[in-house]
Amino acid sequence: MFRFAVAVICAVVLADTLRGTSAGMSMDQVKQTMKMVRNVCQPKTGVSVEMVEGVQAGNFPEDNNLKCYMKCVLGMMQSLKNGKYKPDAAMAQAKILLSGDTRDRVIGAMEKCRNAADGITEGCEVAFVTTKCIYNADPDCFFFP
């Protein structure tokens, strides 16, 4: 629990620090932030590293641990709250953290998936469906811890 709290605090502080800038983070900084999120969510959910790494390549097996890992990640990124996807919060984070064409493409993918999980009530499934939709909307700029 302590690691989770520290990671959330770090992510919020980093986002708040960058809020005043329009440049966003470098891809190396994004990857470091994502690594921190993975280091909290992967052990918490028990999903295998191989399964997590497969998501980046577009592999979305029907696995409950993977789905709940996605819920943890989206929750840490303030994009999922009470089992509901918060696209406006997700896009606000993307605006803060990313820059240029990458930011615009990620936000576009998020917008396309705004309602992907409508009617789904279970939080892990909401996260899974939303993440898979965002990947399919623009796999070339998709990144996930």
Rank of each mutant, 00 (worst) to 15 (best):
D28G: 05
A5I: 03
C68I: 13
Q56Y: 09
G20Y: 11
M77E: 11
M34W: 09
M34V: 06
M76R: 01
A117D: 03
A90S: 01
K35A: 14
V73T: 10
N65F: 13
M76G: 02
I120E: 07
M34R: 11
M77K: 15
R19F: 03
Y69E: 00
E111L: 10
S99G: 05
A137V: 08
V6N: 05
L97I: 07
A137E: 13
M34T: 12
T17W: 14
V6D: 12
T131H: 01
P145L: 11
E122M: 05
M1F: 08
P43E: 05
I9T: 12
C124T: 12
A11W: 00
Q32K: 11
M77Y: 08
V73K: 00
G123Y: 07
I9V: 15
F4W: 07
C124E: 00
S99L: 14
M70R: 01
I120A: 06
E53K: 15
G24L: 14
C133D: 04
A7E: 00
G58P: 15
T102N: 07
K81T: 08
Q42P: 07
G119K: 11
G100R: 12
G108R: 06
V13L: 12
A94T: 04
S48L: 05
G108I: 13
I9W: 08
A15F: 01
G123W: 03
D28M: 11
A7I: 01
P87L: 06
A11D: 10
K132N: 12
G46L: 00
A117K: 05
G83S: 13
E122V: 10
V55N: 04
M91P: 01
F60T: 09
L74R: 01
F128R: 06
D88P: 02
E122P: 03
T45F: 03
A11L: 08
M76N: 02
V30N: 02
G123Q: 09
G24M: 10
